[in-house]
Simulated scan of single mutants.
Amino acid sequence: MRHATHGDEQPLHALATLTFGLACPPGTTKADIDHFIAANLSAERFAGYLADPARIVLLASGDDGPVGYSMLVRGPIADPDVAAVVDADTSIELSKFYVLSDRHGSGIAHTLMTATLAEAAATGADSCWLGVNQQNVRAARFYTKHDFAIIGVKRFLVGSEWHDDHIRLRKLP
C-alpha cells in the first residue's frame, strides 16, 4: 500500500479499465462504461488527479503488480443531493475504491480500506462519504462491514444512462 505518484497514471488507468464496470448495474452498456472511463479514468485524468492537492490516491500492489486503488477528495460538494446530507467542511469523499475481481475475498480490499480511512482521518475530516450503486450488493455488504451507513440517495451518470446510488457516510476516529 502506498501513495500513488507521478508515473502511476497508466497503471491506475489500467486498473480502472478492469474494475469500473464491476460497479455498474447489469444492463449498463459497454459503450457507456467505455465512455465514462475515457472521460474520467484515462491516464491523462489520473495525471491531473495525482497533481491535485485536494486528492489522495492510494495504490495497492500484489506480487504481480497493482491490484487496487482508492481516491479521496476534499472540497466542495457539487451534487445537491449529497450537499443536502453531508457537510463539505467536515467530510471527505471516498470517490474511488476498486480492487481487481480476482482479488475479491483476499483481504486486500480490507487492507486498502483501512489505509484509506487512516488517510481520511489524517486530513482532519470528521467523516468520510461515498456514493455506491444501489444494485451493487457486493459493495454494499463491504461498505456496511466498514461502518458506512446509508444517509441518502443521488443519481450518477455513466455515459448516457443515469444510475441510482446510495449516499453512505462513516464517522472517522
Rank of each mutant, 00 (worst) to 15 (best):
T116S: 04
D81W: 02
Q135W: 01
T90C: 00
T29M: 05
E93I: 01
L50G: 07
A140R: 15
D126V: 00
Y143K: 09
A38R: 14
A120G: 07
T28N: 05
Q135L: 13
P25N: 08
V153L: 05
D79L: 04
I92P: 02
P66C: 05
S160C: 00
T144I: 00
K171T: 13
H163I: 01
A88R: 12
I151Y: 07
M113F: 07
K171S: 13
H146K: 08
I77D: 03
A109C: 10
V153K: 13
A51K: 13
L94M: 15
P76S: 13
L12M: 05
W162M: 07
L157E: 03
G105T: 08
R55E: 10
A84C: 03
G159C: 07
G107T: 08
L59K: 12
L172W: 08
K145N: 14
R2H: 11
A140E: 11
A54N: 14
D34W: 07
M1I: 11
D52P: 08
V99R: 10
L15N: 10
A60P: 10
L50N: 02
P173W: 03
L58D: 01
F148R: 10
D64V: 08
D63K: 14
D79V: 03
H13C: 11
D126P: 00
D165V: 01
I167R: 04
E9C: 02
L58G: 04
G68H: 12
R103F: 14
P53Y: 11
G21D: 03
T17P: 00
V99P: 07
V57R: 10
A139I: 09
G65N: 12
A16M: 09
Y49E: 06
R168D: 00
F148G: 03
P25V: 07
D52T: 06
S127Y: 01
Y98F: 13
I167E: 00
A38Q: 12
A38D: 11
P26M: 10
G131L: 04
S160M: 06
R74S: 13
L157W: 04
D64G: 02
T5R: 15
T111L: 14
G131A: 10
V132D: 02
H104N: 08
G65H: 12
I33S: 06
D164W: 00
I167P: 02
V73S: 13
A4H: 10
L117M: 15
